[in-house]
Structure formats: structure tokens, C-alpha cells
């Protein structure tokens, strides 16, 4: 059991150790999906959902694995859990909102290989979080991911009309902005302390 308070875990995973800007998880979708605010928003919300559900499932599975002394199966079971959660979310969205499903398109299955999802499951295990701590951590970090994604997409929409050297267009520019954002987010360190 870890002694850290829930409020600190939330602020820590949302701002101080933001998954994208300081732990470097979920960079691929962060670069790939951040060019439009509307898609970024949708992607963010589905990631929050997937992360929270898979975190809860991972917590249960981990207790089971420990009880069975089969910790060596952890990585495999986690990835299977995530893949099935994504599949589930996909079916759910397809049924409830076909428009959203079309809008998310290719990004939905891609969440499986979003390292932020597996990252949450692995970090909560490595840090011995309790159930409540795990859920708060999953919420905080997935919202942190969405926050970074949305900020980036707003900046990129503004940049669309500006004059940028051809060389720097695309990923290099996004990374530069991300670096600056990451520097800004460092200002949150020490909060809740």
C-alpha cells in the first residue's frame, strides 16, 4: 500500500507529471491527432474512458495474478485487457453514436498501442496503488493526456496560417511546441506539496 493522498495523486498525474509532457507517454497520438481541436477532443474523451476501464480491470487482474503467483504473466494479460477494452468501447460507440464512430475512425483501434493506456496499468502496479488510488490516478493521467492534446491542437490551429520554414513543418515543429509546453508545465511542480 502506498501512503500518498488521493488529491495529490490527481494533481500529480494531471499537471505535475503530465503523461504526455513529462513522462512521454502517448506521444504518437499526441503528434498524430493534434492538428484539429474537434478530433483531439473526441480522441481525448475516448482515451479517458479506455484508460479508466482498463485501469479498473488491470487492478483486479493484478490481484488475481498475485494470488496465483503468476506475476510473470502481467505484461501479456495487461495488453490483452487493453485490446479487449478498446474493442468493447469500439462496439459501444458504434451502437450508440455512429456519427462519433465515423469521426474517430482509425484512431479508436489505435488506442490499443497508445502507451499511455498500458502506462497507467503498469505505473499503478509498480507504485502499489490501492483501488481508489488507481482509479484517481487513471482519471488524472487520462485527463492530463486530453488536456495536453487539446492545448496542442488549439496552438496548431492558430499556427496553420503562419509562415513557417518548410523544413520545420510537421513533427519537428510540434515537438518544439511540446518542449515549450513541457517547460511551462514544470511550473506546476511543488503544487500540493
Amino acid at each position: 500500500m502506498n501512503e500518498v493522498s488521493l488529491g495529490f495523486i490527481f494533481i500529480d498525474s494531471l499537471l505535475i507529471n503530465n503523461f504526455v509532457l513529462s513522462v512521454f507517454l502517448g506521444i504518437c497520438p499526441f503528434i498524430g491527432v493534434s492538428n484539429k481541436l474537434s478530433t483531439a477532443w473526441r480522441m481525448g474523451v475516448s482515451v479517458i474512458f479506455v484508460i479508466v476501464v482498463s485501469s479498473v480491470l488491470a487492478y483486479g487482474t493484478n490481484s488475481l495474478l498475485i494470488a496465483m503467483h503468476a506475476e510473470y504473466l502481467r505484461i501479456i494479460t495487461y495488453i490483452v485487457i487493453i485490446a479487449s477494452t478498446v474493442q468493447l468501447v469500439e462496439m459501444f460507440i458504434k451502437k450508440t453514436s455512429p456519427a462519433l464512430f465515423r469521426a474517430l475512425g482509425i484512431y479508436l483501434p489505435l488506442i490499443t498501442t497508445n502507451c499511455a493506456v498500458l502506462g497507467v496499468a503498469l505505473f499503478q502496479t509498480a507504485r502499489n496503488y490501492s483501488f481508489a488510488q488507481s482509479v484517481v490516478f487513471a482519471l488524472g493521467s487520462s485527463m492530463g493526456f486530453t488536456l495536453a492534446l487539446v492545448i496542442m491542437s488549439i496552438i496548431r490551429e492558430r499556427l496553420e496560417l503562419s509562415d513557417i520554414p518548410n523544413l520545420a513543418k510537421g513533427t519537428a515543429l510540434v515537438l518544439m511546441i511540446a518542449g515549450t509546453l513541457s517547460l511551462a508545465f514544470m511550473g506546476f511542480a511543488g503544487m500540493g506539496g
Binding site: 523544413l167 518542449g179 513541457s182
Partner: peptide, 25 residues
């Protein structure tokens, strides 16, 4: 110290990408 911080990672990778893009051009 900036380069050990997370932002340093972003800046360094961005610079390498620029070098490669320039090379190609």
C-alpha cells in the same frame, strides 16, 4: 540542465529531425 528535463527530450528530438530534414533537402 534543461536537456535532462523532459522538455530537453522534445527539443533534442526536434533538432535531430531538423538535421535529417535538412540533409534530405
Amino acid at each position: 540542465v534543461l536537456f535532462l528535463l523532459p522538455s530537453g527530450g522534445f527539443f533534442t528530438l526536434a533538432s535531430w529531425l531538423l538535421v535529417f530534414a535538412w540533409w534530405k533537402e
